[in-house]
Design a protein around this nucleic acid. Sequence first.
DNA 1: CTAAATCTAACGAACGTTCGTTAGTTATAC
DNA 2: GTATAACTAACGAACGTTCGTTAGATTTAG
Lengths: 193, 193
Amino acid sequence: MKSNEIKKAGLKYFTIHGYEGASLSQIAEEVGIKKQSIYAHFKGKDDLFLQVLRDAKEADLSSKLEYFSKIDSRNPEKDLYGFLQLVIDLFQKNEQLKFWLRMSFFPPAHLAEAIDKEVFDIEEKVQAILESKFQDWIDAKVIVEEVAKTPTLAFLGIVDSIMLELVYGNDEKRLKDKLEASWTVFWRGISHP
Amino acid sequence: MKSNEIKKAGLKYFTIHGYEGASLSQIAEEVGIKKQSIYAHFKGKDDLFLQVLRDAKEADLSSKLEYFSKIDSRNPEKDLYGFLQLVIDLFQKNEQLKFWLRMSFFPPAHLAEAIDKEVFDIEEKVQAILESKFQDWIDAKVIVEEVAKTPTLAFLGIVDSIMLELVYGNDEKRLKDKLEASWTVFWRGISHP
DNA sequence: CTAAATCTAACGAACGTTCGTTAGTTATAC
DNA sequence: GTATAACTAACGAACGTTCGTTAGATTTAG
């Protein structure tokens, strides 16, 4: 299907140059067609963008949901650190998470509302799952905390900072250092009385 | 000085729409002149952008340096939390930090190299100062840690995540919650044995 | 089985608009 | 009276988009 090739090229250039900086002719050239031909598959630039966005959202969400459904809920140290590894993997394997991150925080102005809705949706779901996991661990006295929301938000903060480090450069060493540092302090912070 | 007005308008639109999405006519209109008149003050779009960038960098750096020069180095809990408050203040008072954040992570492709150099410079300096502060606190046995780099990187991670929260929405409540959660876990993580 | 109709995917050409930029001219300020 | 900073006018290039058309495959009808 040619549509998928176009979406793939769109994902690439939207990620690198942003919505305004990516041009249809550039995207078409990548696929080997003229920019007018894109209109046989999409209504226009906005349509292409929004389809790429929804694909990225779905991929991101389903990867995370799948991970959460697989963990055993008895070993928070392994499960939480594994989630950070998952995020790093997703980021490096496919471009969708990078695209998603960029558009979450710096959306094209005229689509900001539509994008915000999707972002809120995914954020809400992930937070809800994490919070219930933390609650389980608190009940099982595996970690020490009064309210589940505190470690949840702190952990999501680490996820964000790791993603920023991923988008920043490709300083593999610095990423590893930062992950280790954040994780060490975080884990000590929620597991020690 | 009209140049400053132009830079101020440039800062605004570069921050909202990014380099490619901001147009000189838009910027000129904000100031009340025609876009061609910008060329009496700047060589072109790149020149304007880079001057805005350097102003933002300088403002960001000097605010942070000033803060570090004022703290007494005996009370890390107050000093570190105060730094997070400073970042939030800077972000909400002037647009420069938001601009700086956007361009650090999603620079226009043809200026990426020049921008990266500035970003690396400021990052390096802040990290060096923080690391030496942490070393002082470790030596004074106010915090518990072996190497200063670990709490430094973990703290910088919190700074990043707070900035992302600031750029995201203006959910004041969520920002407060996240700050409190990250800080609680972090402080417990570096102060408890 | 063949002929007509429909669908798919691409094309060149052109649309109106906006972009950043340059040149030459006029007004303002010291 | 000279510089500075604004203006008008115009530039080539690129943008997203629409148009009419073509070539080939697939489906439908007689």
